[in-house]
Design a protein around this nucleic acid. Sequence first.
DNA 1: GTTTTATGGTGATTTAGATCATCATTCTCT
DNA 2: AGAGAATGATGATCTAAATCACCATAAAAC
Lengths: 234, 234
Amino acid sequence: MKKGILNNEYNNSGSPVPDEGIFNYLSAEEKARLSEGVTLMTFKRQDILFKQNMPSDHLVYILKGLVKVYSGGRGDRVVCIMLAGPGAFAALASAYSSNIYRNSAAAIEDTVALMIRKETMRDILKQNGLFSMAIINLMGKEILDVSDKLVAFSMKQLPGRVADLIRYFSEEIFNSSEFTVSLTRQEMAELIGTTKESLIRTMNEFKNDKIIDLDGKNIRILSPELIKVLSEIG
Amino acid sequence: MKKGILNNEYNNSGSPVPDEGIFNYLSAEEKARLSEGVTLMTFKRQDILFKQNMPSDHLVYILKGLVKVYSGGRGDRVVCIMLAGPGAFAALASAYSSNIYRNSAAAIEDTVALMIRKETMRDILKQNGLFSMAIINLMGKEILDVSDKLVAFSMKQLPGRVADLIRYFSEEIFNSSEFTVSLTRQEMAELIGTTKESLIRTMNEFKNDKIIDLDGKNIRILSPELIKVLSEIG
DNA sequence: GTTTTATGGTGATTTAGATCATCATTCTCT
DNA sequence: AGAGAATGATGATCTAAATCACCATAAAAC
């Protein structure tokens, strides 16, 4: 599996490395070299991509699907640190600043991902400054996202965080005011640091207040303005 | 001020860029070039290094002192995202993934810092992959730290977070079981997402339980084991 | 096709910690 | 040195949201 996943649907150059996004910074030679250390994997919903405390040998680049990166604590409580969709890495930080994965990751939807050997990636980063710069930008974005979440967790109360969540789905994941989430209520709650009960109650309040329309996993935003205000005032 | 801060106490090469830490990855030529875009600044306690929403022209490298990076929300509540001591950058993420500073930073102790022009730094990162790799490692560490904090904020209750704080001071900042903090109770509270009243109460409980000894800003850990357990069970 | 297991939903109860109020003590600044 | 401000400390009260206890569907598994 190390080699020869040729001409898959993500490229046309006989390499598993896609011809897009961040990999555009690589030369043909570097792409070829990188693909030696790459494995294409598919995961079904609920499949584990990697588990907290396992040795972190690979970085995971999502080609298709949706993945949650989470951390389990005492008991069965879980916090979801981020979602990673196509074009995102699921283990950037663990890969370069730890020998072990510091979080777990699981597929929320059926997912196709590239497992990239850390060492191979590292070699290329060392010699290709533009590529490194692109990774630095990605990591910076990740720091800002997680910090924003930290601020929200400690300053906003539930309605504000639920509004954040709805905005996030609408603006960053689905680019639409109506969408169907593939997450359970439990998973949504984990994303904003609450319980499923509290999430359900708050979403129903939004529904009663005609801020959103809610039918199972289908969410339609009726008042983007109010969602924005709620998310901003916390 | 752009040039000519020669032979200061942090180097002996006629450049404001220090001969240590991450800057060891730079060639003499790169150091010289970087120093063209560098300003050495001193700050007194409470001085602002940069403010949320200002254009982010510089990265800030701490040479001496201690800085808090924080985010202000509604009202007068504040969350402290990280502390930055000597050898740390205070605005890595904002510098590369945003045009504006996404957080504020203020000196907790009298501080000496290098203000490094973003553009100059960027040029060097692009052409020096080893240096980029070192920055990637720093950023990875930062992501892991902030994620850990996020997990603590949403899963641990106060005693666990206070234990985290004491461990952090002891293990990461002072490397000793007895230390004198330069932060106020308010600032300590902001670091773990609580109020000064709750922090004070919890610390006093620790004192009554003979886990720590407490005299104003002086803290002595009497039972590192208990602190560790409290921090782990949350 | 019927049992079993996840998920969605609701009400009642509890609780950790915020908030409010107040006072003591220690800095800071002329 | 003394006024004023910032900090530290404690008690009383309040409240957002967790927890607990169910039940109803829906989805998997046998």
